[in-house]
Design a protein around this nucleic acid. Structure first.
Length: 269
DNA sequence: GTCCATGTTCTTTA
DNA sequence: CTAAAGAACATGGA
């Protein structure tokens, strides 16, 4: 569900309300959405002030005034919203955090692939690759040479590059005119340069539209994103390529749906 | 009933 | 041993 643009939009809509605010009661309606499960957030969070909220990869990181930190991952179907306490509690609401002025931060996640993860003062970064906006062609090339898997699969591997998911991997490969099945370690210097630019361009465009809403995604105010109508390949199988008019194909790579234009993306490296 | 879904981790295979 | 492929997690919509 949420990839970098969606997660960043949630952060941007959460921060104005939450930063500087003193938190209240933490309620877990399901035990298994907190990790590690034995950590006692009911004691660690209340009465602390939110110092900062930011994004790393697809994680929404909260920092408290005592240095304690946690992050929320939205998984496939998670929503993290600020709602008035009297607003009806949606089905699949797992966590509720009072944040003053009659407002609550609520985590709703039907599929429960997401959750809240306590970090304490530990590192956020372990095992995560560089942020897409920090990439340069050389760095991208170096990361891609670490694996022979298809470039599509490599782009989804958060240890190689952090923040892309199925939508923006497909969109970036289209933009860069690279076939998604190309082995990552056979990408040419020229292709890596195009891909580096394409990733940033696609993400910037998506951020401007506040992300893609397919089914569940909304920002912290409950507002869906608008980027879906600007997708060029993702979920457009059978439709015409906006560039050349060929029919967009859907194939499966690494167990994931992959959408591409067979004419624009025919190059092998 | 079938297939599919914006993600990640664990297990199995080569 | 490592890298890659596959299965699993849970729910709901078409």
């Amino acid at each position: 569900m949420p990839e970098l643009p969606e997660v960043q939009t949630v952060v941007d809509t959460l921060a104005p309300t939450l930063v500087g605010r003193r938190l209240g009661a933490f309620l877990r309606l399901r035990r298994d959405m907190v990790s590690p499960s034995e950590v006692n957030l009911e004691n660690l969070i209340p009465n602390r002030r939110v110092q900062a909220i930011w994004r790393r990869a697809k994680r929404i990181i909260f920092e408290l005034d005592d240095g304690g930190r946690w992050f929320v991952h939205l998984g496939m179907s998670g929503r993290l919203t600020i709602e008035p306490e009297h607003a009806p509690v949606r089905k699949h609401t797992h966590l509720i955090l009072d944040c003053g002025d009659g407002l609550q931060l609520r985590l709703v996640d039907p599929r429960r692939f997401g959750g809240i993860f306590w970090l304490g003062r530990g590192p956020v970064d372990e095992r995560l690759g560089p942020e897409p906006f920090a990439l340069r062609p050389q760095l991208l090339l170096r990361r891609l040479r670490l694996t022979r898997r298809p470039i599509k699969t490599a782009l989804l591997d958060q240890r190689l590059i952090a923040g892309l998911g199925n939508i923006y991997a497909d969109e970036a490969l289209f933009e860069a005119k690279i076939h998604p099945a190309t082995p990552a370690d056979r990408i040419s210097v020229a292709s890596a340069r195009r891909l580096n630019a394409a990733i940033k361009r696609v993400l910037r465009r998506a951020l401007r539209s506040r992300g893609s809403s397919l089914r569940d995604y909304v920002d912290a105010n409950g507002q869906p994103g608008d980027f879906r109508r600007l997708h060029r390949v993702y979920q457009r199988a059978g439709q015409q390529c906006v560039t050349c008019g060929a029919t967009i194909q859907r194939i499966v790579i690494g167990q994931r749906s992959t959408h591409y234009c067979p004419r624009c993306q025919s190059a092998t490296a």
